[in-house]
Design a binder for these strands. Sequence first.
DNA 1: TGAGGTTAGGCGAACGTTCGCCTAACCCTC
DNA 2: GAGGGTTAGGCGAACGTTCGCCTAACCTCA
Lengths: 347, 347
Amino acid sequence: MAKKATLKDVAWQAGVSYQTVSKVLRNRMRVSSEVRERIYAAVADLGYQPNVNARSLRAQSSRLLGYSWQPGYQTYFNSVLEQFEQGIIYAAEEFGYHILLFPQGEGAQQAETYRSLVVTGRVDGFILSSIEYNDPRIPILQQLQVPLVAFGRGPDENPCAYVDVDGAVGMQQAVEHLAAQGHQRIAILAWPEDSRVGNDRLAGYRAGIEVAGLPNNPAWVVRGESDENYGYSAMQGLLALPFALRPTAVVTMLDLIAIGAIRAIEERGLAVGRDIAVVGFDDTPVARYLKPSLTSVSQPAWEVGRLVVRLLISQINGESVEDQHLLLPSELVIRESSLGYRPNERD
Amino acid sequence: MAKKATLKDVAWQAGVSYQTVSKVLRNRMRVSSEVRERIYAAVADLGYQPNVNARSLRAQSSRLLGYSWQPGYQTYFNSVLEQFEQGIIYAAEEFGYHILLFPQGEGAQQAETYRSLVVTGRVDGFILSSIEYNDPRIPILQQLQVPLVAFGRGPDENPCAYVDVDGAVGMQQAVEHLAAQGHQRIAILAWPEDSRVGNDRLAGYRAGIEVAGLPNNPAWVVRGESDENYGYSAMQGLLALPFALRPTAVVTMLDLIAIGAIRAIEERGLAVGRDIAVVGFDDTPVARYLKPSLTSVSQPAWEVGRLVVRLLISQINGESVEDQHLLLPSELVIRESSLGYRPNERD
DNA sequence: TGAGGTTAGGCGAACGTTCGCCTAACCCTC
DNA sequence: GAGGGTTAGGCGAACGTTCGCCTAACCTCA
């Protein structure tokens, strides 16, 4: 690796002191245009770029943001987290920051990891995703008094700065859309009760049912984990209901769950859309390519990422002016799987 | 954020010079046990941890590894990349390194990004994944003469250090396993010809066919992209072949493609396993939970990650002793979807 | 013409380490 | 009891920046 150019090399070549070079490059000093040109020429010639480690030392700021997520959480179809990651990376880059990766560890050792990252000056702040009700990371980090923004709402009683997607609005849109298509009995393949995200979406479902004045039946609320087989077996269960109780539409928590449900529907010889409408969640890339294409609720994950970084950097810079709690709407994307419904009297 | 303790603070409290503290903590100096204890006591008391930025500056090494991958590449079911990421993170941590994230950018601007990362001292080396035949990143980085290890083989003529999984062996195992189950006509849902990974696996398929002495038919090699619908429609095509030519087993490039194929099979009223065997690839978590559970070829992605980091750090430390080209075997995991075959004369 | 203001640029210090050399004290040993 | 080796620890310098103060030169205007 070739020796890297330093301020002194540039200064020598331009015939000025190295501190002057530093100031000129950062527009901290007025100089004659002749000197300025000599400096820029030397910079270009030597390919000079300031050493970030020296800068970090001097400025006591590494311009690195730690990103912690829960590996294996929604490990399939996690395109939302992937988009979020992209969003934070690009937004950070715009501010001259980079993203340092560290997965959420276990228990007490976790606290030590965070402390170490902070106290050694590795990172200037933290981004957390995969937040759940009583996320252990939040109190630990708050105690360290380090800038922190989460993707997702934490415990209501002690909120840290966050950006989140309001899954309820998209879910409600989905239900209202299905009602508008003539569906009366709409089921939901929900998540376990300890999922805050799941409960928010479920609330949107209930709101939609209420607004549309549709019947409500506890049998239509099924709970399970994030896998295709849950969708498959839960749908089988719904299809086994007596015909008069059998839902004609189902909304889900994840495209993958919807895919499982579709498999059960087709196996039963019914047509998705025409006989039973299916709505996914997250609008993953597959949704568009399925046949029939899958109606899904999309999350502005990229935008969430950008905002998270914006908030975090404003915290780092000590400008705590902005509102540190943002909620972005989710949005229904209508495709074939929820269209073309023909009420059917046969079993 | 509380003021962080420095060497000088520790030294003051222990009553020695700060350089002595530095040396004692790194076992570079013999001291009386009394002094040693005073130092450790002060460290514990103040919660001292060395400032990484100062260290980086002095050592001219940031202990940061850049990780570049292609976002959106195999964006669904990318559990292999996820496991790989985990592997590099944990392995790096063991060596006191961290992973810096930056997605593969576009074109010429890309080169500048790499150069900047190197020349500013941000990273000590690079890890690349999603390598394809003529990956533009490799020559750029080689020109920068920076330590570099890839997950995947690059161009054969100018190989950089890599760790890769030999997909051919798992694919061949799959074909031989299917042959042992009595299958005679085995199809493959392959990738486009410009995919090196795909071609390697296809070669494994062909080797398996040959070893098992099975018939070969160009119609049984279908190519397409990584989505569920490709699996679905390609399988429909295979099922539409005249009965005597119709494959009784199909191997695929991805579990997601297998899921699409399964959908087509079941829609046709055939049973996966009994009528038509299906084999996925990557052994994603879904494979286990599908019904029937999915036979799949698993890749030791976590292990690949560890080895990549090992190689990279040995390069950084200038110990170029190890072999810098490692190939790990993939392995067939047999589940229900490839068992229970009953040759069938009906159409 | 000389006091005061502006301008272009220099210079010392500091951020927190690590490295290598220096020194004082002690211990042998002949 | 003087010379030489070992040991415990000190000290200056350097890594590459940024920051703030300093200074010489020139300009202005009474």
